[in-house]
Simulated scan of single mutants.
Amino acid sequence: MNVLFFEVTLLFYFLGTTLFLVQLAGRWEGIWKPAFVVAGIGFFFHTLALVSRMIEGGHIPLTSMHEALSFFSWALVMFFLVVELRYRVHILGSFILPMAFVSLISAAALPKEIRVLEPIFRNVWMHVTLSLLGTVAFAVAFVAGLMYLIQEHMLKSKHLDGLYHKLPALDFLDELNGKAISFGFPLLTLGIITGALFAEFARGSFLNWNAEQIGALGTWLFYLIVLLGRVTVGWRAKKAAYLTVVGFAGVVFTLVGVILKGQHPFA
């Protein structure tokens, strides 16, 4: 059943992405309402897919790249739904849902079989969950930074068209950027620590210096510098937006490398 629920989720995320992109293009102002409903239905089926996969596999479904990308997509949509209900930032779906859809399409292209885990690997979900939630927060910071740069460019060029009026205020985007990084960095830190402890327990070594671990440490160091810059020397607004866009590009590059090498989240 998890495969059926997964495929239904893909359909609804595709429809939701299409509707939100139509909204972004300014073709239909009220289209955010059906788009939000479609995204919510997709999230419901996505949750069913994850739960049914957990029941079928007998463990938390976070032990393969397929499952990790699916969870990343699920968490992104959950964040969007929560923020939309609280702040009514309709345009956010035009950025978040396409990202979630691309993540789910990538998951669909990877092997979907449920792995039979040795007992020693059954607790790895904690490390993967923390790391992925941190990555979701960085994705949100990326979206906030991207919207900030778009709006800031429109202001400078005095190109104040329909898109400009749909974007949130610059102060809100800068605040969202900072909060997302402040939320994601501790999660990634805990993810790295639990991953190192798990590696020591499973293999007798805290670090294997593989691509995933090097990428994770590089990401951690980059966002540490960004966070310290915001707190100590006032790296905000445009500079912070550029840094988070560049940082998330590095996260995506690392993730693609891990997928191409066929490594699992706990490799």
Score class of each variant (00 low, 15 high):
residue 105 I to T: 09
residue 236 R to S: 07
residue 103 S to T: 08
residue 227 L to Y: 07
residue 135 T to S: 14
residue 41 I to A: 01
residue 17 T to H: 10
residue 92 L to Q: 01
residue 154 M to W: 08
residue 209 W to S: 10
residue 69 L to F: 07
residue 239 K to D: 15
residue 232 T to P: 15
residue 103 S to C: 10
residue 181 I to L: 10
residue 174 D to Q: 00
residue 21 L to V: 06
residue 13 Y to L: 06
residue 25 A to K: 14
residue 35 A to S: 04
residue 8 V to Q: 05
residue 41 I to R: 12
residue 97 L to Q: 04
residue 190 L to E: 03
residue 64 S to R: 03
residue 78 M to L: 10
residue 16 G to D: 12
residue 259 I to D: 01
residue 128 V to E: 09
residue 106 S to A: 15
residue 172 F to G: 13
residue 247 G to I: 02
residue 7 E to C: 14
residue 152 E to G: 12
residue 151 Q to L: 02
residue 195 G to K: 03
residue 4 L to K: 14
residue 130 L to I: 13
residue 226 V to E: 02
residue 116 V to C: 13
residue 184 G to Q: 03
residue 167 L to Y: 02
residue 227 L to N: 08
residue 40 G to F: 15
residue 38 V to N: 04
residue 28 W to C: 06
residue 242 Y to S: 06
residue 218 G to N: 07
residue 100 A to I: 01
residue 130 L to M: 12
residue 146 L to R: 07
residue 215 G to C: 07
residue 216 A to P: 14
residue 54 M to W: 12
residue 36 F to Y: 13
residue 201 F to S: 11
residue 225 I to L: 04
residue 104 L to V: 05
residue 92 L to A: 01
residue 29 E to A: 12
residue 126 M to C: 10
residue 158 K to P: 15
residue 187 L to W: 08
residue 213 Q to L: 04
residue 173 L to D: 07
residue 51 V to T: 08
residue 110 L to P: 00
residue 215 G to S: 12
residue 80 F to R: 09
residue 171 D to Q: 14
residue 219 T to E: 14
residue 191 G to I: 03
residue 18 T to R: 14
residue 117 L to F: 00
residue 130 L to R: 08
residue 117 L to Y: 02
residue 190 L to M: 09
residue 21 L to A: 05
residue 53 R to K: 09
residue 99 M to A: 13
residue 164 Y to T: 09
residue 181 I to S: 05
residue 233 V to C: 14
residue 26 G to W: 08
residue 84 E to K: 06
residue 208 N to Y: 13
residue 44 F to W: 14
residue 223 Y to N: 01
residue 50 L to A: 12
residue 222 F to P: 10
residue 112 K to G: 06
residue 109 A to R: 11
residue 238 K to C: 07
residue 12 F to L: 04
residue 191 G to F: 05
residue 248 F to G: 00
residue 249 A to C: 08
residue 99 M to W: 12
residue 211 A to R: 15
residue 249 A to E: 04
residue 9 T to E: 02
residue 6 F to G: 06
residue 59 H to W: 03
residue 74 W to V: 09
residue 258 V to S: 01
residue 187 L to V: 04
residue 100 A to S: 02
residue 264 H to I: 15
residue 108 A to Y: 12
residue 79 F to D: 02
residue 68 A to C: 10
residue 93 G to T: 01
residue 186 P to L: 03
